[in-house]
């Protein structure tokens, strides 16, 4: 670097010019302070709570909350529900997102119009999409049963959200509506960055569309797919408002995802210590799942 330029860049209000390292750190400082204050303090408190006996004034160290959750059938149930919910929604977001992104990447008329409509559901808050779908699933006054009965697919009023077997698939279908557009935009952005020449070369060699997709599109998109998978998994793991408004975890506990179960323990039954232990387990799970993603990102910065 030109020494004259670096001289003038160290101009500052302090008598001694700030070193470049310190300057950089100062830019990052507000962000770090907020994270430490709003995340750091609660995390430490939650961890301390999780090792304290339930309903006690004196904080003594105990692992009883963790032992208790191992035997808590409802905890395992919510873990299972969360797993089904996260895996199926993330999978469907990516399959549908990929199909729509590839379709939008083709030479099209009215491309802007289609893209606009394709992203639209993402702007609806999940709390509100839960409300809309709840009424669509209404057995007698909802549009879904109406269409199914009209088209002759069924003769009965199906209880979508009140049946233990149908409730999760119904919630997943509603979530996919809102969730896939974001994955789609990210994938579309990746598709547009693939050099056209690669496809042209493949065409000269007589490759089919499927072969093109497997040998050109997928390898080029790999990094972006991993980013989208990671972000989506994290967000789906934390999903709360959608299920809160659709079923509140019911019927019984059949749609009770982990965040909802922990919320109930913390704020309804006021079992702070026990809820904290479950939340710590949830955080550890999420960090383990996203470790490859964090590694990949930080390796390249």
């Amino acid at each position: 670097m030109n020494p004259i330029i670096s001289e003038s860049s160290s101009f500052s209000i302090f008598a001694r010019p700030l070193s470049k390292k310190l300057q950089g750190f100062l830019f990052v400082l507000p962000c770090l302070l907020m994270l430490l204050l709003v995340l750091g303090f609660p995390v430490v408190t939650a961890i301390v709570n999780s090792f304290s006996p339930i309903w006690s004034e004196v904080k003594t160290f105990t692992a009883e909350n963790y032992i208790k959750l191992l035997r808590d059938e409802l905890f395992w149930n919510s873990l299972k529900v969360t797993f089904i919910f996260v895996v199926s929604t993330v999978f469907l977001h990516h399959v549908l997102g990929m199909i729509v992104a590839v379709a939008l990447n083709a030479e099209l008329r009215a491309k802007r119009f289609f893209r606009l409509i394709a992203i639209l559901p993402w702007t609806v808050p999940d709390v509100i999409s839960g409300l809309i779908w709840r009424f669509m699933y209404n057995p007698t006054s909802g549009i879904i049963n109406y269409l199914l009965i009209r088209s002759g697919a069924t003769e009965q009023y199906i209880e979508w959200l009140a049946s233990p077997n149908l409730v999760l698939p119904s919630i997943i279908f509603a979530d996919v509506w809102r969730g896939y557009p974001f994955v789609m935009i990210i994938l579309l952005a990746g598709l547009q960055a693939i050099p056209r020449e690669q496809y042209e070369a493949a065409r000269v060699d007589g490759a089919s569309r499927i072969q093109e997709f497997i040998h050109i599109t997928i390898p080029n998109l790999m990094r972006i797919i991993i980013i989208a998978l990671a972000l989506d998994t994290i967000w789906q793991f934390r999903r709360f408002g959608l299920i809160y408004n659709m079923t509140l975890g019911g019927p019984g506990h059949t749609s009770e995802i982990l965040s909802l179960y922990i919320y109930k323990h913390y704020f309804k039954y006021l079992n702070f210590e026990y809820a904290s232990a479950m939340a710590v387990v949830m955080a550890v799970l999420m960090i383990i799942i996203s470790l490859p993603y964090i590694r990949m990102i930080t390796r390249k910065v």
């Binding site: 470049k20 390292k21 310190l22 300057q23 950089g24 750190f25 830019f27 990052v28 962000c31 770090l32 994270l35 709003v38 995340l39 303090f41 609660p42 995390v43 408190t45 939650a46 709570n49 994290i234 793991f237 934390r238 709360f240 982990l258 965040s259 922990i262 919320y263 913390y266 704020f267 702070f272 809820a275 904290s276 939340a279 710590v280 949830m282 955080a283 999420m286 960090i287 996203s290 964090i294 990102i297 930080t298 910065v301």
Partner: peptide, 30 residues
């Protein structure tokens, strides 16, 4: 992060990204 290569930079970025993994239900009570 983009312009200054101070020490511990990669660790800090990793830390910031990892903080996204903390579930709301863990934080909101405290």
């Amino acid at each position: 992060f983009s312009r200054f290569h101070f020490s511990g930079r990669a660790t800090l970025i990793g830390f910031i990204l990892a903080s996204q993994m903390l579930p709301g239900v863990l934080l909101v009570g405290p």
